[in-house]
Each structure stands twice: as structure tokens, then as C-alpha cells.
Design a protein around this nucleic acid. Structure first.
Lengths: 224, 224
DNA sequence: AATTGTTTTATTGTCGACAGTTTTAGCTTG
DNA sequence: CAAGCTAAAACTGTCGACAATAAAACAATT
């Protein structure tokens, strides 16, 4: 007898496996490109194959797994080319999100975001080289702006599909970019545009911000 | 014994049901907002619930179905608000696709697209009011530009996830827009920019083109 | 020894049945 | 008659087993 918590949407077994596997894939605990054996995984999680397949199909929807008929699921492989493709999509989608955020974010949301940026700024000043915190701060910043757009489709595409891939690249490609200082300054300019309700400028700044990261990767790729 | 065609990727039962249901949902044969009974549907298709659920989970990935734990799948509901959200996402993504297409489309691809546009233009001149052909022509035009971008992620997001929703709105909202003439002219300008390899202009023109459609819907919404 | 063809093994696709939850129907009570 | 509780029906979540397909191991031939 499973006394389900009636308040929150009851978590099914497939849900928990989906969430756990997602994290393991993102963090590289399950290697990129590796084939997922359904019998093996279902034994590992002590669930049936049906339940596992439910979880796997959802991971495919996140773009973390690929499936071939009669062959099975594989973890996606990472490549610089794919990373650059993601940057192009983020540039366009987050640019639009930023434009809409300038229209739709509440005064309180904007204030909270400014506060968040200050906190991270101090962290960065005090304990130099804490790349981890800086990364999480960056993720949080972009996340909040997308949420602030108020466009549910945009939110779904970015937060539920693309961002897990983005985090996967961060974990496994180790993007400790040397753009920390610049990124902070760019974030501040973006918030300013949002606060001024200048959607057009906000979009341009966000696109430049992401485009700069992309060019950074392209430059590093060419020097190798 | 099923002599599977070894050349093409063998179609599984779940595949065929997925494709058939997708069309029925897009064309409104399965009503929006209606709940899908798994026992009923599996009986209809003469397959087991497991196979059906495989198909349903993929339809959820396309954004055509919504799922709640312990309750089941429903066909998504359509609304003007959601349609406007789609336009915003298309504006940003297809704008980027058009920019990349200007860089990456081959000379032959561009020539084919110009030819396609001419054919549809003649059709439109001859048999006035053939909204259907005009619609399909529009879909094809946008589709080819996205393909021409060469960005696989962009292609997946637009062609495999968003465009079925777009077609669903066209079928069920009956968007016989009065923008036929203008749209043709805009398409021509876009191709010209692509031919000139002017990515920046191509993006701007595509965004205006889609933005104009959005504003058209907004205007119609306000007059009701 | 390498390669092709065959057999065996393992894996995915599909099925039907049971368990737990939600919804519906019916009954009781104020 | 309405409201609330209870019991029954229906549905989704989960399970284990069989069928069809792909991968691996092995044998045979050149």
C-alpha cells in the first residue's frame, strides 16, 4: 500500500526513474553514446521493462536519448558541431524570450533578478575561480528570463528540452569559459534593458551575449 | 512471418499507429480536448495497450497530447493565446533558420525554391480562391527554408514538433488569411535575400513575414 | 587464415493480466 | 431533495511472458 501524497501530483515509478536517469545522463554517469540495455536497466532500478520504457521514451523527448527501431536507445553523443547548433537555437529563442520578458516581467521579478546577480557578483569577487557557482548563476539568470517571458511554449522548449542538453555540455565539455567578467557585465546591461521595458534592445543584448559564447567555442575549436 | 523490408527502417506497429493518430488529431478527426481511452483506442487499432502507449508517448513529444499521471492523455486544446505563442516562437526560430539558409543553401536548392514559388504563383492566378493549394505552398516554402538552414536541431524543433501543431491550427481554425498576395511578394523578397547570401536581411524579412501573420490574428481577435 | 553462411543467443516489440487510483453509481442521512 | 459517504466500475500504472528481430558465436568452404 503506497500512501500517495495527494497534494503534489503523485510521482509514479516511471517518473522517479526518468528523473534519476536524466541526472545520471546529464552528469556523465551514464556515458555518451552508450547503448542502454533494457533488461539490465530494469534490473538495476528493480522495475519492469514497461515502466523503464516509459521513462526512456520521455528521455528521448528531452533529446538526451536516441532510439532506433528494433535496436534500442543510445545516449546522444556530444560534438562541437552540435554545441554550435544549440547556441544558434538559444540565440534566437532566448533573444525572443528576453524581448518578451521586457514586456511581461513584474517589477518584483526584475528586482529579484538584480539581487541574484549582485549575490553572484560578490561570490565571484570573494572566492575567485569558483567556476561552479558562476556556472549555476548563469543558468539561473537565463532560466529566470525565459520564465519571465510568460510564453509557455518558449518555456517548454527551453527549460524542458534544451537546458538539460546545455547542462550536459557544461558538465562534460567543462566550459569554464574565460568570459566570467564580461558575462557579468552583459547580464547587467540586459537587466537594465528589461527594467527600461526596452524589448528591442533586450533582445539584441541577449543575442549578442549568447553569440559571444558561441564565437568563443568556435575560436577554441579552430585553435585545436 | 513478416517479411520486413530490409531497406527502409522497418515500421513497427507503434509507428503506424503514431502516424495515423497524428494525422487524425491534426485534421480534427479526434476532437481537441477529448480524453483518449487506452482500452478503447487499442481495441480500435487492434493492438495491445503497451503498443498504443508507445505511440501516445511520442504524440506527447510532438505537443499534440498532454498527459497527467493516473488520469491519462488528452488532445491539446487550441486557443488564440496559444496560437500567438506559436507565432512568437516561429518568428525567432524561422528567422534564424532563414539567416542560416542564406549561408548554407545550395544554388540548386535556391533555384528549386524559386521554381516552386512560380508554380504556386501561377496556380493562384489561374484558379482564384484555391486556399488549399496556397496553404500547402506556404507550408512547403517555410519547410524548405528550415531544411536549408542545415541546423539539425532547428529542423527537429520546427519540422518534427512545431509544424504539426501549426497544421492543426490551420485545419481547425481555418486560417484562410487575406494575406495571399502580400505573402507571395514577401516570399519573393526572402528568396532574393537568400540568393544574395544576405543572411541578416533574410532573417529580418522572415521575421516580418511571420510577425505580420501574427498581427493579423491579433487584429482579428480584437474585432471579435 | 579469412570470409561466408548458419545456428545460437540476446534484445526489442508486443501481448494479456493484475494492482492501485480515479471516477461513477448508488445508498444513506440530515 | 441535497449532501456526503460507500461501493462498484473503469481506467491507468506495472508486471512477466512470448514473438520477431538483431547481434554474436560457430562452422564450413575456399
Amino acid at each position: 500500500m503506497q500512501t500517495s501524497n495527494n497534494i503534489s501530483p503523485s510521482l509514479t515509478r516511471a517518473d522517479t526513474v526518468f528523473i534519476d536517469l536524466r541526472q545520471r545522463i546529464v552528469e556523465g554517469d551514464v556515458q555518451t553514446g552508450s547503448k542502454l540495455s533494457e533488461p539490465e536497466l530494469s534490473k538495476y532500478y528493480e522495475i519492469s521493462r514497461s515502466t523503464l520504457r516509459d521513462a526512456l521514451s520521455r528521455l528521448e523527448g528531452c533529446g538526451l536519448l536516441e532510439r532506433k527501431a528494433n535496436i534500442g536507445y543510445r545516449v546522444v553523443t556530444l560534438s562541437t558541431e552540435k554545441l554550435l547548433e544549440i547556441f544558434r537555437v538559444r540565440e534566437s529563442l532566448e533573444g525572443m524570450a528576453c524581448r518578451l520578458a521586457a514586456q511581461n516581467m513584474s517589477v518584483k521579478q526584475i528586482a529579484d533578478l538584480k539581487y541574484l546577480l549582485d549575490v553572484h557578483n560578490k561570490h565571484e569577487s570573494l572566492q575567485q575561480g569558483e567556476a561552479y557557482i558562476q556556472q549555476e548563476g548563469d543558468v539561473d539568470f537565463h532560466f529566470r528570463i525565459v520564465m519571465g517571458s510568460g510564453n509557455k511554449l518558449l518555456i517548454r522548449l527551453l527549460c524542458e528540452e534544451l537546458y538539460y542538453l546545455v547542462r550536459m555540455y557544461r558538465y562534460q565539455f567543462g566550459m569554464a569559459s574565460p568570459r566570467a567578467k564580461k558575462a557579468f557585465s552583459e547580464h547587467h546591461h540586459i537587466i537594465q534593458a528589461i527594467e527600461d521595458r526596452d524589448g528591442e534592445l533586450a533582445e539584441i543584448l541577449m543575442r549578442r551575449h549568447i553569440s559571444a559564447s558561441r564565437k568563443n567555442v568556435e575560436k577554441r575549436m579552430n585553435t585545436l
